[in-house]
Simulated scan of single mutants.
Amino acid sequence: MPKNLSLLKDKLFENIFNNAMGGIAILNINGQWIKVNKSVTAFLGYSEDELYSMSFKDITHKDDLDVNLSCMKSLLKGDADNYQMEKRYFHKNGSIVWAKLSASIVRNPEGEPLYIISQIDDISKHKKDKNHLEFMLGVAKEQNSRLSSFAEIITHNLRTHASNLMTLVAFLEEESHELTEDENFDLLKGSVINLSQTVSHLTEVAKIKAIDESNIEVLNLYDYVNQCIYNVSALAKNIHCTIENEVSENHNVKAIPAYLDSIILNFLTNAVKYRSDKRDPVIKLSSEIQDEYAVFHIEDNGLGIDLDKFGDKLFQMYKTFHRNKDALGVGLFITKNHVESLGGHIKVKSEVNVGTTFSIFLKAG
């Protein structure tokens, strides 16, 4: 190779090495710095001469040193060609900085180790952001726990007071028959009944919590659907409702038994409740596997929902979309929370006066 070309290549390598955005260092097999670029000196705060007079061990955090030395030993023995790790260094100003270290070894033709090439990337901000996020998640978890306890106390107390009011109303009604003809008493009684119902709903909402993974079981979807159909069979017979069960007997889901039963029953009774008076109700149940989910479809030929108008309110609490006297706007809210707490989600297709299809995605078992 011509001398000028060799010098040019050496100069090019020197420029690339010194001006690389990431830290690059060359160490001997004892861990002493023998060449570093500007990014390393900027990251660690030491001058080149200061680094050349020490080993990486001198500025490595003690909690990371044993792992680093173990990785380096494997590299020198030939058990590994390279390694990566996150580690802490002591900056010259005494602060701790985080780096992602990638190291590889250079050997001579005989296979003996000559030196170690290290790439040192500053991840201090990433670590700071991650630690802050973990701290905030911990705060949120603690606050959520406190709010959950508060909700339980409040709903318990409200339930007690509402029950007492109901007892007093019943007592007055029994002792003073003339009150039953008083319009104001009827208003009072209605208000107390509504209060009791509201407290009951709030109690159910307060029960919705994050699920302990240990409580989740693998459940057969067909068995639970079949049981729910049996539970509404008398009602279906009275209104001439046909329920077609095409759910696969081989589809399992990961769920809590009480939640799965509640989810299926709520959608099934809704399909019955919001039937059309223009035709006999037909409800078709089916299932399929999509990626990691077992999808339970429940299709009806009922009143349908105007999704353009109500789609974003469909699962909100106390939202109703038909003039059904039994509609409270609580069931779908609770059911959606149950589905999501199991790691699933719900999709809806609907057309007014044609019918609705709910697709419930649950983790396949």
Rank of each mutant, 00 (worst) to 15 (best):
Q197P: 00
I208Q: 09
D280L: 07
E217V: 13
Y224S: 03
N238M: 03
N270Q: 10
L202A: 05
Y259E: 02
I211E: 08
Q197L: 06
M166A: 01
T180S: 10
E217A: 11
L260F: 11
A271Q: 00
A206L: 01
S233C: 04
E246K: 15
V253Q: 06
D280H: 05
I229M: 14
G190H: 04
D182Q: 11
Y224A: 03
K278F: 12
D261L: 12
T269R: 00
I208M: 02
I216H: 11
F171R: 11
V272C: 13
L179F: 07
L179T: 07
H251Y: 07
A271W: 01
N266E: 08
A234K: 10
V253C: 05
V199R: 02
Y222K: 12
V272T: 08
A210P: 03
S233A: 09
D186P: 07
N220Q: 10
L268P: 00
L187W: 03
H240V: 03
T167E: 15
S248M: 09
D280R: 05
D186C: 04
L268T: 00
V232R: 09
S214D: 08
V253Y: 10
K273A: 13
I263L: 11
N250W: 15
E183Y: 11
E174P: 01
V225G: 09
D277W: 13
K189N: 13
E213F: 04
E183K: 14
S276K: 15
T167M: 14
A210Y: 05
E217F: 14
E246P: 07
E204S: 11
L195K: 08
V199T: 02
S200Q: 02
Y222G: 15
Y222Q: 14
L221T: 01
L172R: 08
V169Q: 09
L268Q: 01
E244W: 09
I256V: 15
C241N: 10
V282G: 01
T269Y: 01
I229D: 10
T198F: 02
K278V: 03
N231V: 02
I208E: 13
A271Y: 01
I256G: 00
R275N: 08
G190E: 04
I193A: 05
A210K: 00
E246I: 01
L265V: 09
I264S: 10
H177S: 12
T269K: 00
D280P: 05
M166V: 02
D212E: 15
